[in-house]
Amino acid sequence: MNLDRLVAFAKAASLPVAIVIVWALVTETGWVAAYVLPPPRTVVATLIDFFFGGSSQAYSGKFMAHFVESLYRVAGGFACGAILGIPLGIVLGYNRRIGAFIEPTIELSRSIPGICWLPLALVWFGIGTGTSVFLIALGSFYSIFLSTLGGVRYVNPVLLRAGRSLGATESSLLTTVILPAAFPSILSGLRLGLSYSWIYMVLGEFTGVNYGLGALLLQSRDTMDTPLIIGLMAVIGGLGVISDRLMLLFMTRILGMDVR
């Protein structure tokens, strides 16, 4: 049993390991110039410096400062997206008559790529946190809203029939059958929304704020610091994975809900 998991892990890890080996080979031999692609160990050293300090670089030991700033924006924007998206999805999924008024507008506005909102957001909210939070909220809203709506609207009708014939009233049906049945799709909408949040965080911070992982990423391009660029890409990706796992854990354990 444990061996099976080990084998599965080895299979999954084989490609990344191969990529790192090739990466190390082509960079350490000088075949690819270091300013185009630095060797893995340089990236690792830069990251260690970024996390724990030790050099005179501006970013040295500044991980927490940048991270907290980004996290703050992601959390704020994602919370706005969820606070709007979940209730709206429930109401419109539950009541098609209200939906007929609002859904087409939301569908239409969704076809505007999130990035197109950037100039307008800058005009409205200025450079910095306001714009980032707005973009993140917008980016996460659609997936949360649509998944919630779908989950609520397309509950297996036989479950509704079962609920009614067991004595549930129309109003209690929402909390006893519809929401629990829709929970898996609400959760997947939240996960998708969270991953969009990290994406739009980077976009929002590209507008030129001083602190934040996205901001630092842009600055490291200006200084042609490729090790830091690659390191930050890995950090942002890693944070996305960690936050997704934490949310999954929270939803399943703390709320005691089942994801099947």
Partner: peptide
């Protein structure tokens, strides 16, 4: 209504509730 119990072809159990909670669904409502 609860005066007519229904058993559907596919059972139509609530997948998020365990056996006991499925059975207790009616009396709770």
């Amino acid at each position: 209504g609860p005066d007519r119990g229904v058993v559907f072809q596919e059972g139509a159990l609530f997948p998020w509730l365990n056996v006991l909670d499925n059975v207790c669904f009616g009396p709770r409502r």
